[in-house]
Write a protein that binds this DNA or RNA. Structure first.
Lengths: 190, 190
DNA sequence: GTCTATACAGTGATAGAC
DNA sequence: GTCTATCACTGTATAGAC
């Protein structure tokens, strides 16, 4: 038996995967234990607040990943390069459609009410960062906002549809189409 | 106390709303009772198979609604008129973004595995009916399939984003944009 | 940090009176 | 058809040994 988990930071992604697969209510402690190998003792050691604290830590972890790989590049980097990086990051993160967006899933049921703030923050920052990047790339104001909303929603919808039809290829294909549509809206570099 | 429920057909939409709000795992019998006014006796009288049977009946009920108001018009009616009706029906059904798509929500977690068949059937029929309607309207084969996928995914994504940002207006706005994009892809009538 | 034992509320489900 | 009572079980959470 190799010791795989040494600290909370190692536990978070493991537990995250269980929440992703089972949802907040579906992820019971026994199933978390069974799928991660972490006993109740360890879980409550890392997360004294129980499931609520686990979910909060997971949302913070997801947010941090997106800040680093998506939001900050969009906010600070060269817009065209940042957008290109966004598509790569998103495809990687969601494992080409095999993985869902936990933040989006939480948004659908009453779980949203418990974590309203982090859920809102994640999506608001994504849409806003993309909108500003588009504007810096020369897209006109109102259009940029529409494109940004449409793109983030398109990604979420593709995750739903790919899982519903059990067809991962649909997700990557959808990303490609969304990327093309976005590119078509950006003025060519002078 | 007025008697509001007389038969199973009356119970289904009431229970459906609870599943929509709480998800399959979150919708415990006590909360279903509390929100619908139906006691356990009544619930098990209507649905001897318990929650599983409730969810199955709800999915069938949702499917029947879409068959009548969306799928069959797309399959049999004049394509342009059917597509216009689809947008109205969708906006009405999802209450301008205040209501989520239970089928889409089920698709995201392991609930999908329990109801894989009806979930797959619902989305596959929607995409296929729209694709054929677009082709009958003069859209070329490959493009029609892409448009159809994109549109259904766009609707699901808009529901996620609208709820995450707690901004219903976003949903109606997204529908308008999706409709415009679809129209732009359809050749003008000769 | 991880394990075992345990508390006790809430779960889905059944039975029987009305 | 609806109510109440009750079932066995699983849920989250805690305590204490190691």
């Amino acid at each position: 038996m190799t010791r795989l988990v040494f600290e909370k930071a190692d536990a978070v992604p493991l537990v995250a995967e269980v929440f992703r697969e089972l949802g907040f209510e579906g992820a019971s402690l026994s199933r978390i234990t069974e799928r991660t190998g972490l006993g109740k003792g360890s879980l409550y050691h890392f997360f004294p607040g129980g499931k609520e604290e686990m979910a909060a830590a997971i949302l913070a972890d997801i947010d941090a990943w997106f800040v680093r790989h998506v939001f900050e590049p969009l906010e600070k980097g060269e817009p065209r390069a940042a957008i290109a990086q966004m598509w790569r990051s998103v495809n990687t993160y969601f494992r080409s459609g095999r993985r869902i967006c936990l933040v989006g899933a939480f948004a659908l049921d009453e779980t949203r009410d418990r974590f309203a703030a982090p859920i809102h923050r994640y999506f608001a920052r994504w849409v806003e960062a993309l909108r500003r990047a588009l504007m810096r790339a020369g897209v006109e104001g109102a259009a940029a906002g529409q494109f940004a909303e449409q793109t983030v929603a398109g990604i979420q919808g593709a995750l739903v549809l790919a899982r519903a039809l059990n067809k991962n290829a649909l997700f990557t294909r959808a990303l490609t189409r969304l990327a093309q549509r976005l590119d078509a809206g950006i003025p060519t570099q002078p």
